[in-house]
Design a protein around this nucleic acid. Structure first.
Lengths: 349, 349
DNA sequence: CTGAAAGCGCTTACAG
DNA sequence: CTGAAAGCGCTTACAG
């Protein structure tokens, strides 16, 4: 590994000048700058990240908080792969790397070293990791009910971008899909298909996207002047089994719905299975729409009408917000972003 | 952030002693050690990672090489989420974090700073990143045809663990499923079901798991004394569309197979769709088995018989191999691991 | 068993 | 525009 000292010697300048060429190029004369740049390129020089972070207190790392504790409900993210891909490529384009922060398992840490992993039960641990590594900020992926911990991060002053959960703080923002609008589109589509008895299967009541999707359902129903009897709002938890259970309850009703909007595709698939078991034709006897457009949505029979999110765009938007805060002058925290969704009509409606 | 200096002052010792308590505890008297440990715990002290890495030349980071260049064929990993989960939790348990290394996009790097991202076309860039960040090693995920680049990493002396691709080098090893055995199990199962005309849809011919699965198919066929006409080996690329195309070719044969083993579930699903289109009943007219046990395998109709890999165990095994090399005395590179697979019989056979 | 000192490779005021 | 110097917070021979 070539060091700044070697470059400096070869160019007949001090290491300070070499450093300036890469950090405040405008303060260096064009002549020296070009000389240093050329030699650096030839020797494939790049500053040592540990030294740079130590001296400048800023690294090129952005932390990812994604609690994978087995003991958590830990629902699988509907599109983690695309999300990571978007995050990573947008960060990469600006020279940043994504650090998946260790989460403390039961017996984290060696016998001697203090524990290294963090748990969302103890947000301070993450804050400490952020400072020890001089991370540029934290990207927060909700794994179920991390809102409280995320709020703590947001207050710490560390740049934070949360996905699908609203946070606020001096340097905190979030990215989400326009869940309300997406749900509204789906329910309007059902209404346009002639349905009037339309039920919904919701996500967990403390989950923001779930709340917003329910609001979209209610709004579309209200717009059309359709009633929403209490029993038509069946609670689920985004998992398939809860969709099955909710669908059984709906079908057992005196006046069962002729259409169901499930706030997540997994639940929609569960509802589909239950309808099939009950001998109902989909969409003939009951129409079904979901949310997320996960891979299996297109594959079940009948293929599921659903609301697609901009999966990779989600990651890109989060990365952009983070970079804006890192490079920004400080006061300019980006506003929350609400990405548009798109109704994908298939044969289940 | 409390520093080692503060701890030292509070304990009335030198920073050297504080450092020793955490790095070579046996060289410190029990009395001082306990005092330092207590104070450190009270102040929630943990060493600054940048400083530690700079001074010791070793960090608590392990790099993940996963090329996500859009221009690559970039087939989606069949179970990236579980893989990451396994990796992350096993690394976390030993205080290591996973660093997703930036890949150079088209225009990586700011105007002034040298480009930061690396491309597999230029393995040296990754090697440099490894040294600049003092990474403990590199975990290599193949995204299609990275074998050449991976071989270069393996020769660099950096601890490397590849997933599903065989590498060798002074400190290199790999983890894979027992693909041959898994395929053999699947094909034996078809044979046991009375089939004799059994075809296979393969993965790319340069892909190691694809090669091994084909070998397993051949072995099972040979064991049973069944012929394998050339046309019964239909090449695919692991994607669904290739499974459809291959299935069409197989069905057009003079003597079409009565059973097909696809070397990947996506292709098996493609084959299933094609069979359905052709008006064939599965498994009545043609039985189908896949490989991977991805989520949709259980969901298609009929549900797919397939070979399940130990998804999270994959990540754990890779992490363990890496940790063994990092903490090992040096000479002891772990032997490649071949994880057992498990046949999951469903209704497509 | 412990401390003083050098050093890891940078960055950043401070002078000039 | 440039350099000398201090410093970032640790670790690690080297003495004692």
């Amino acid at each position: 590994m070539t060091t700044s000292r070697e470059i400096a010697q070869l160019c007949g300048v001090s290491v300070a000048t070499v450093s300036r060429v890469f950090n405040q190029p405008s303060t260096v004369s064009r002549q020296t700058r070009e000389r240093v740049e050329r030699v650096a390129r030839e020797l494939d020089y790049r500053p040592n990240e540990s030294a740079r972070a130590l001296a400048s207190k800023r690294s090129t790392l952005v932390g990812l908080v994604w609690d994978t504790d087995h003991r958590r409900p830990g629902w699988r993210h509907p599109f983690l792969q695309d999300l990571l891909l978007g995050l990573k490529s947008a960060l990469s384009a600006h020279g940043y790397h994504l650090l998946m922060l260790a989460t403390s398992g039961a017996e984290t840490g060696s016998a001697n070293l203090p524990a290294v992993g963090a748990s969302l039960a103890d947000p301070v641990a993450y804050v400490n990791m952020t400072r020890r590594h001089h991370l540029g900020g934290l990207i927060l992926i909700d794994s179920g009910s991390d809102a409280a911990a995320f709020a703590a991060f947001a207050q710490s002053g560390i740049p934070c971008v949360a996905l699908d959960v609203a946070i606020e703080g001096p340097r905190a923002t979030y990215v989400t899909s326009d869940n309300t609008d997406g749900a509204e589109q789906a329910v309007r589509h059902l209404i346009a298909g002639g349905h009037r008895r339309i039920a919904t299967i919701t996500g967990p009541p403390d989950n923001q996207p779930a709340i917003d999707r329910l609001a979209g359902y209610r709004r579309a129903m209200a717009e059309a002047g359709l009633p929403v009897p209490e029993e038509y709002v069946a609670e689920g938890d985004f998992y398939r089994a809860s969709g099955q259970a909710a669908m059984r309850r709906l079908l057992a009703l005196g006046e069962p719905p002729t259409a169901v909007f499930a706030a997540g595709d997994e639940m929609a698939v569960g509802a589909l299975l239950t309808a099939r078991e009950a001998g109902l034709r989909v969409p003939g006897d009951v129409a079904l729409a979901g949310f997320d457009d996960i891979e299996i949505a297109a594959l079940v029979d009948p293929a599921l009408t659903t609301v697609a999110q901009d999966k990779a765009g989600f990651g890109v938007a989060a990365a952009e917000a983070m970079l804006a805060m890192i490079n920004g002058s400080g006061g300019d925290t980006p506003a929350p972003r609400r990405l548009p969704t798109r109704l994908v009509v298939r044969s289940s409606t």
